[in-house]
């Protein structure tokens, strides 16, 4: 297992089981839109989010949930790391540019 992420603001992400699409834990259920994601702060909320992820795995909604760091940009949030930025916005180039 990856080491536990410690960050000020986090979001739980995963890939949807049926089509592999990137999804995030929202305020109410799962969303493909990061803007609708539930912002997780502190260890307790992180554990709650991870528990929701484990349940969704058991319910066959998604696979491989994990927390990512997000930072506030303008009015919303965006992933802190490039890998997650690309997962969120799609390939940066080519025929499927921005197809996420």
């Amino acid at each position: 297992m990856a080491k536990k992420l410690v960050a000020e603001q986090m979001v739980l992400t995963a890939n949807r089981l049926a089509d592999g699409r990137v999804i995030y834990l929202g305020a109410d259920g799962w969303t493909i839109d990061l803007d609708e994601a539930r912002i997780v702060r502190g260890a307790e909320e992180a554990e709650g989010a991870e528990e929701a992820g484990r349940k969704a795995v058991a319910d066959r909604i998604l696979v491989e949930p994990y927390l990512i760091e997000v930072v506030t940009v303008g009015g919303g949030v965006e992933p802190a790391r490039l890998r997650e930025k690309i997962r969120c916005a799609g390939p940066t180039t080519g025929h499927s540019r921005s197809a996420a």
Partner: peptide, 11 residues
């Protein structure tokens, strides 16, 4: 075994 990976955005 059947060539199906899970990548960043999709299978």
């Amino acid at each position: 075994m059947n060539g199906v990976y899970l990548q960043l955005h999709a299978y």
